[in-house]
Nucleic acid binder design. Structure first.
Length: 461
RNA sequence: GAGGUUGUAGCUCAGCUGGUUAGAGCGUCGGUUUGUGGCACCGAAGGUCGCGGGUUCGAACCCCGUCUUCCUCCCCA
């Protein structure tokens, strides 16, 4: 028989990993709730019409599409059409509802927008929801990149208040700090600034290619960026006009001032800059000790639906992509027939956060969810005696178990060791006769006799 | 999508320019010890060398294909 395998880019999560993942999920969830967000879940699969065209060409390529069920039951005429469609699909990337009409969700924001539109009459705006579910991308797996991974989204729709942006910065700070990640940077920029830059460079509407190039500034340096801009069709004068972008330095406020001058004649640009400034002021208003917020003109982000602020969080000195990101999208619901609903949201990448925490070695050692007490019985009578004891422990909220098989004590103690169970209660004829149970501390090896009633107190310390 | 890389026991890896029955450590199981774990000692189980084809008297090793792993680019959480 062949050994079973997992599909590329997917993983199992064993008990140890799950305990750690749940620690991350719980931290994120409680922060979201603290800030007034309500839970939502949507199906793993969506109609392809919901998904396509929302993530740009690159994104569309990465969609997992689901083959329509029971193609063999189609009528002969349809089968012929299906074959033609399949030939067409092999030649170019497109959809054919005859073959596939559903796909796995690519992120949580678009399904959320779909939900908002479908439930617009029942929703009280501004609507704040959080959503923690897996998403799927037919990407090539790499470090920190999987084909199935979890996102933890929080979005607000129905308000364009920049308070939402400021609160996102607060939540990013709170979650990462609580997880024990301290050396990180929250980068912020605004799509309007990028739009204005493109206009200024005499290439209106070309912010896409512009961003892709300047986004690499800190990675490949100015010369190579200019070279890439030239390759992407920007003229030498255009590139010259971008000079201030390359040389921009200083604090958040200083950069803002430089841009204000630069955008003297661009309304869009000034708008973007003043939004950035207001977000900064609001964040300061919250009085964060260390907001770790940095303005980065070269921050672009790929998703095509962003229109205002954009965020990205990088952990410093760890070689992995961003662990969180988001932004404002003014018209995502417009794609589903409900224009004029502005939204802003962000997402934590749990899988990457996990990788970062593992690399930094900052997972808490103790696991509150595991077994605290193992009952070891020597014979059938002792087992019978153990059952009510087990029940009492559990009723007192103490995770406990009785070794299910009657085997040698060595094996049972080994089991306790393997599961790092801190306490073992031994029950045999002596204990049953005296009513004093033998309680063993597995770390120190100490053993004491305690009556059943005393057990709970000893063990819950 | 382009380029590179990896695959040998449950895990981490050896395996010489192709040459008998493919090894180690850890882990597992059994024993020394039928009511006391971690240590020690003794013993055992466990592998169509990723899969398929080819070259050869002979392939874990060479060639081709395929899948997988990880990496760079692209893009992204």
């Amino acid at each position: 028989m062949q050994k079973p395998t997992l599909p590329k880019g997917t993983r199992d999560f064993g008990p140890v990993q799950m305990a750690r993942r749940n620690f991350i999920f719980d931290t994120i969830k409680s922060t979201f709730q603290q800030f007034g967000f309500m839970p939502l879940e949507t199906p793993a699969m969506e109609n392809l019409s919901v998904l396509t065209g929302k993530y740009g060409d690159e994104g569309d390529q990465l969609l997992f599409k689901i083959l329509n069920s029971r193609p063999h039951e189609a009528k002969e005429v349809e089968k012929e059409k299906m074959q033609q469609e399949f030939t067409r699909l092999l030649a170019q990337n497109s959809n054919s509802s005859l073959l596939t009409e559903k796909g796995l969700r690519y992120d949580l924001t678009v399904p959320f927008a779909r939900y908002v539109v479908m439930n617009r009459n029942d929703i009280a705006f501004p609507f704040k929801r959080y959503q923690i579910q897996p998403v799927w991308r037919a990407d090539r797996p790499q470090r920190g990149r999987y084909r199935e991974f979890y996102q933890c989204d929080a979005d607000v729709v129905g308000t364009d208040s920049l308070l939402c942006e400021a609160e996102i910065v607060c939540m990013m700070n709170q979650v990462l700090t609580q997880l024990g990640i301290t050396d990180f940077t929250i980068k912020i920029n605004n799509r309007k600034v990028l739009t204005a830059l493109a206009e200024m460079a005499g290439a209106p509407g070309q912010e896409g290619p512009l961003c892709v190039a300047i986004d690499k500034l800190d990675k490949i340096g100015r010369e190579k960026v200019e070279q890439e801009l030239a390759e992407r069709g920007f003229s030498p004068e255009s590139i010259g006009k971008l000079d201030p972008v390359f040389t921009m330095q200083g604090t958040f406020g200083e950069k803002i001032q430089q841009l204000q001058q630069l955008f003297a004649s661009s309304e869009t640009g000034r708008e973007g800059v003043s939004e950035l400034q207001e977000v900064m002021e609001l964040v300061n208003g919250f009085g964060l000790q260390n907001p770790r917020l940095e303005f980065d003109v070269t921050l672009a982000r790929g998703l095509s639906y962003y229109t205002g602020a954009i965020f990205e969080v990088k952990v410093n000195n760890v070689q992995i992509g961003s662990i969180s990101g988001g932004g404002r999208y003014d018209n995502l619901t417009g794609a589903f027939g409900l224009p004029g609903v502005s939204g802003v949201g962000f997402s934590f990448g749990v899988d990457r956060i996990y990788d970062v925490m593992e690399e930094l070695g900052i997972f808490p050692a103790h696991n509150a969810a595991s077994t605290r007490v193992l009952l070891v019985a020597f014979d059938a009578e002792a087992r019978k005696y153990a059952l009510p004891v087990l029940r009492q422990l559990r009723q007192a909220g103490i995770n406990s178990e009785l070794y299910p098989d009657q085997t040698k004590m060595k094996k049972q103690l080994d089991y306790a060791n393997a599961k790092s169970i801190p306490w073992v209660v031994l029950i045999g004829s002596d204990e049953m006769a005296s009513g004093q149970l033998a309680l063993k501390n597995m770390q120190t090896g100490e053993q004491q006799s305690v009556p059943v009633e005393g057990l709970i107190g000893k063990v819950s310390q």
